[in-house]
Design a protein around this nucleic acid. Sequence first.
DNA 1: TTTATATATTATAACATCATAATATTATAA
DNA 2: TTATAATATTATGATGTTATAATATATAAA
Lengths: 93, 93
Amino acid sequence: MSKIDYIKTSEIFKALSNPIRLQMVDFLLDDECCVTDVVNELGISQSASSQHLSILKNSGIVYPEKHGTRTCYKVNNKLTKEIINLLKKINND
Amino acid sequence: MSKIDYIKTSEIFKALSNPIRLQMVDFLLDDECCVTDVVNELGISQSASSQHLSILKNSGIVYPEKHGTRTCYKVNNKLTKEIINLLKKINND
DNA sequence: TTTATATATTATAACATCATAATATTATAA
DNA sequence: TTATAATATTATGATGTTATAATATATAAA
């Protein structure tokens, strides 16, 4: 029927199925950011921020770069980038 | 930062975050189908099929049309259609 | 080397999801 | 009007997710 990998793709969607993580990805696309930046931007706890970033990392959406004591996260995934672009174009219904 | 509605959009992704539902949407895009067709195509139980279709319906991705004893489901949501098209184009990483 | 900063991990409890099984509803046919 | 087919709903138990709190690790500065 289709060449879509349903399992792999649904894992991407699962990672994006939380409003905080969706906002994180959108924020990380604009600016490369460390965890503290994300905490300040989104107004969530440090622990929650690290855990959500970890989920995004494990699904391959984001990757970390260490700089001293800071960790900067960048969006990695082509599909995710294109989906976010789509979201910005479409006024969802 | 962006005009994305994170809550609403994350609900769409949540509905698509299950491989069975993702396959359902892909199938329903090709053919308008009743529940039995979905059951046969995906090889899942009738109950599971109805429940997954119900989740897709509640998230606004799909809508039902009753014909006698049958219910035909069609994909409704512009964002979802465009995402599926995107998936078919991209060899996900 | 102690201290402070940045981040990660673990534990916990409330809550949601999933597949399966059982039952209910609804519409048509006999 | 009873029987059948198609679909929906409910119940249950296992598993996963979430936010929060507490603790751990790692780097750099003093």
